[in-house]
Design a protein around this nucleic acid. Structure first.
Lengths: 198, 198
DNA sequence: GGGGTCATGTAATAGGTTACATGATTCT
DNA sequence: AGAATCATGTAACCTATTACATGACCCC
């Protein structure tokens, strides 16, 4: 009985959010998204942007407000939020915040097939992942700290904090997984089941 | 300089994995995926399955081995892995395991726009998420335990363990976030910046 | 033996990404 | 002035999902 959203692409949510502040043209939306680093949370590319803008218009969530020809620059269409659009924004946000949705992270995919690799190889590959994860943690920490000291409010960095929490958890999980893979019990069991591999 | 994979859909990896064991026809692949609950890690649907099978064939990772007409049932085409395909499988797995890729979880999207909700509302919505998260943790725990006692090897459940670890981390993060949102300092700051909301 | 539902696949449609196009501006 | 790059959008091309189709089996 799920009432599917007319426009499902998360980028559309970002567009609605931008228009909440003031009417602007698509290119400007894109510029702001990138300027505020939002493109770290949304998969952004210009083609998709124009697509969702059009979808939102068809769905009645935004309207063409005017078309400006700046006498130079290509013609730009300025869009404004409708009441329905504002409605949709808050409704969507509420859903996203309250209701965890099933997702399909790439690493989960790999894990679900991990038994197809020999324990030794799996462990070694995971070690490499540990290195990469730590590096990423370092980078984000650094970025967050520098943003904070240059006056950005913490609330604009929550998403990065979230990423950090997730990464830390993954670090712990992987460390522990490596240990499990190295248990002689498991190694023997694997040999018995998959011993017939090339 | 990323050498893009010819077939990028993770479902294709699952197909390669199935064919690693023995040649089968697409429908059977789907059946096994579901039977082993792999469809919790991969986004599975029949349409996509036939699509990736065709893509894999074009890319030379699998070949039609024979077309069986069981004298009843529609004609079924049996596919087998090629050497390139086996190669691709291991290469892909190695990449997935070693290299964390940027992903775009829905909750991250919401978080990056959280400042647009009043602290009070945000906190309340997050409380609701806590409930949902706990419920999910409970379910998975239960499922894992029951699978283990009925003899499934732990290595076939790592992906669920991973999910659990991620959920636990999120629980912690959200709990802490709610507290931060309730700090009077933040509430005042929010009022000052966004006070002019409807 | 007719109604449901498996088993299996194809076709139509919608969604998203890449590539291309074009004038303006800035740089040397 | 010509080269590089920015600003802006459109169109072509893949990918993925939904809807449709068809014969067999199963049940009472």
């Amino acid at each position: 009985m799920e009432k599917r959203r007319k426009v499902a692409n998360p980028l559309a949510l970002a567009v609605l959010a931008e228009l909440l502040a003031e009417p602007i043209h698509p290119y400007e939306m894109g510029r702001r998204l990138q300027a505020h680093g939002k493109d770290r949370s949304f998969k952004y590319n210009r083609g998709s942007l124009y697509m969702v803008v059009e979808q939102l218009r068809k769905a009645g969530f935004i309207t063409e407000q005017q078309t400006v020809r700046d006498t130079q620059r290509p013609e730009r269409t300025i869009y404004a939020l409708t009441d329905d659009g504002r409605q949709e924004f808050y409704d969507w946000m509420r859903e996203l915040v309250t209701t965890p949705r099933r997702e399909y992270p790439q690493f989960g995919v790999a894990l679900s097939l991990l038994s197809l690799l020999s324990p030794a190889e799996a462990a070694e590959l995971l070690e490499r992942r540990l290195v990469a994860l730590s590096a990423e943690v370092g980078e984000i920490n650094e970025a967050v700290r520098s943003a904070l000291t240059s006056g950005v409010l913490w609330v604009f960095l929550i998403e990065e904090e979230y990423r950090l929490a997730a990464l830390e958890a993954e670090l712990g999980f992987v460390t522990q997984l490596i240990e499990s893979l190295e248990q002689p019990d498991y190694v023997r069991a694997w040999q018995k089941i998959f011993g017939s591999r090339t």
